[in-house]
Design a protein around this nucleic acid. Structure first.
Length: 578
RNA sequence: UGGGGCGUCGUCAAACUGGUAAGACGCAGGACUUUGGAUCCUGUUUUGGAGGUUCGAGUCCUCCCGCCCCAGCCA
């Protein structure tokens, strides 16, 4: 019994490689019944009028993933039937994004505009068989004649022209004899249909606009409802997967293919992805960018693939996320924490560790021999022994995180405070002896410690334990860096859901915090843009692809590490400390 | 008050022809720990509502309630 699906074949009970969602279920059924001869061919059909976002990623992973699971194929096809809103800039970015996500369409890159001539001929065919007519109603009138949700529409007065007249008119439409908007070609279906899409939908409009691929060759352009099923048919698509709002269009999709008598793929609809703490529409992205609320389409806070790439999200993490959210027909909003979990899961396995101090404060080891430096072994990635170790320089003057010291620590604060001993990661145990403050502001400017030379490497020979291990950087061996800390773009899970508040008012005022004067290990100064690092105890970071320079590194925080202390501090607010 | 969809844990999401509610994230505890990281344990749900059929219903029937989509010469 081969249903065409790859399995992890472990002998007797073949287990499907991927969890079955309802779409794969349908495909399995088609394979059993032989509807498409066991063939599986999908497509990802973006309109090149915007940048791809995480919602598209779900669709990309679904379409290419199904092709992979069923040993089929998946095409990349630009749905470019509307010349007035599409640009090559977008096709380039989309191609780049899909490739970055990790998918390959081989030689199957198509454009709906590749089929304009074919599409036109199919339209003529419909005209000749009396299934389409040229209508002279204005846009306004078409709307009036359409009726409403509860009332049927009325037939266009031009509905009963002869096939000959329609053919003549349609050819003249193509020839450019009529002004924009003056006529349309409409499918002749049923003006009383309860499904508005079936009320003689427009299938060609007159539109003098230069197309990004066909230039000025055409002055009439097909509508989505007409172009899409035929494009699918021409490419031999077996499963045309789209989002829920097209469910009402399926009867029309089927009608064209039926009337034309050509290969009939199965349209299947699924629920688009929604994420908490963000927005997901082209319109809102545009507003964010135009209003200067973010720094561009690739702002690391944006849920665009370009933004997530710049932020440091690994494509594999996005793929894992797409798989975990599943596929169903129910409208849903996925917690952004799941996406972040997938990012951490991936980066924990792959990112080399490094030391970086974001809010530095000097720590001086009083009994460390003046002028001495030494080196310690640093484990590159504890999750990946093959990554080995490297040497990290140490001296008597260091920087540690300001947050890692408290003069009067609250109960569960285990880090440094006067009299307390902690470990400097991979180096020594140190005990705080004194603290130097700015007399004017009272701010701690220097922490004084003594170290125990016997604890070289971080372990005490007498077996005594410390409750905290701090990261540090040697003042002599570090370089300053700018670090950009990102939080959710919106401070509420559902932007715009509060009565009397616009979605833009829900923007998180601290979604971006820029830190300068951070101190990082010297080798990070030449970090390759986009390459992931884990700054120990802080999170995952990568050099910014746009602004980082070899001598002046700029890092983006991709995502924080999970932080128990932050939770404790949050739930037991303000009692000691400073 | 037309049509098309959808309602299972806080959030996603499984459950073959009805057979006695997976898993993941989150959250809460705990173990371990030279990252308060990672890892590992434990806990957290009875299916929108009301009836009905049945030995047995998330799965079947009836009625009700709620949410989403559709009146672009956009996709």
């Amino acid at each position: 019994m081969d249903d065409g699906r790859k399995t992890s074949g472990d002998g007797g009970n073949a287990v499907p490689e991927t969890p079955a969602d309802f779409i794969r279920e349908i495909i399995l059924e088609h394979n059993r019944s032989g509807r498409f001869g066991g063939r599986v061919h999908t497509r990802f059909p973006p309109e090149p009028n915007g940048y791809l976002h995480i919602g598209h990623a779900k669709s990309i992973c679904l379409n290419f993933g199904i092709a992979r699971d069923f040993s089929g194929k998946c095409n990349l096809r630009f749905d470019d039937t509307n010349p007035s809103r599409e640009e090559t800039e977008y096709v380039d970015s989309i191609i780049n994004d899909v490739r970055w996500l990790g998918f390959d369409w081989e030689d199957r890159l198509f454009y709906a505009s590749d089929y304009f001539e074919n599409l036109y001929r199919f339209a003529e065919q419909l005209v000749m068989s009396g299934k389409a007519y040229v209508c002279d109603l204005t846009a306004e009138q078409v709307k009036e004649y359409r009726g409403t949700l509860t009332e049927p529409g009325r037939n266009s007065p031009w509905r009963d022209r002869t096939a000959e007249e329609n053919l003549d008119l349609f050819r003249r439409m193509r020839a450019g004899e009529f002004p924009d908007g003056s006529r349309t070609l409409r499918a002749k279906i049923d003006m009383a249909s309860p499904n508005l899409n079936m009320r003689d939908p427009v299938i060609y409009r007159i539109l003098r606009a230069s197309h990004h691929r066909t230039g000025d060759k055409w002055c009439i352009y097909p509508m989505y409802d007409f172009a899409h099923p035929i494009s699918d048919s021409l490419e031999g698509i077996t499963h045309s997967i789209c989002t829920l709002e097209f469910e009402d269009h399926r009867p029309l999709y089927d009608w064209f293919l039926e009337e034309l008598g050509i290969h009939h793929s199965q349209q299947i609809e699924f629920a688009r992805l929604n994420l908490t703490h963000t927005v997901m529409s082209k319109r809102k992205f545009l507003e964010l960018v135009n209003d200067g609320l973010v720094r561009g389409w690739d702002d690391p806070r944006m849920p665009t693939l370009a933004g997530m790439r710049r932020r440091g999200y690994p494509p594999a993490a996005i793929r894992a996320f797409a798989e975990r959210v599943g596929v169903a027909k129910r409208d849903s909003v996925v917690d952004i924490a799941l996406l972040e979990h997938c990012v951490r899961e991936d980066l924990n396995r792959t990112a080399p560790r490094a030391m970086a101090v974001l809010r530095p404060v000097r720590l001086v080891i009083e009994n460390y021999p003046p002028g001495m430096t030494e080196e310690f072994d640093f484990v590159v990635n504890p999750e990946d022994p093959s990554a080995g170790t490297r040497r990290i320089p140490f001296s008597g003057v260091l920087y540690i995180e300001r947050d890692d010291f408290m003069e009067s620590p609250p109960p569960k604060f285990f880090r440094l405070s006067p009299g307390r001993e902690v470990r400097l990661r991979y180096a020594y145990l140190v005990t705080c002896t004194d603290v130097v403050k700015d007399p004017a502001t009272g701010e701690v400017v220097e922490i004084r410690c003594i170290y125990d030379p016997a604890t070289r490497g971080g372990d005490a020979p007498d077996g005594r334990r410390v409750k905290a291990t701090l990261h540090w950087v040697s003042a002599l061996h570090c370089v300053p860096a700018e670090v950009r800390l990102y939080e959710h773009l919106f401070s509420v899970p559902f932007p715009g859901s509060t009565e009397g508040r616009s979605w833009k008012e829900d923007i998180n005022p601290s979604s971006l915090e820029v830190l300068s004067g951070c101190m990082v290990e010297r080798h990070l100064a030449s970090s390759e843009p986009g390459a992931a690092w884990q700054f120990e105890r802080l999170g995952y970071f990568c050099a910014d692809s746009a602004d980082s320079r070899p001598g002046a590194p700029v890092f983006n925080r991709t995502v924080t590490l999970r932080d128990e202390w932050a939770k404790i501090a949050r739930s037991a607010p303000k009692d000691g400390g400073n």
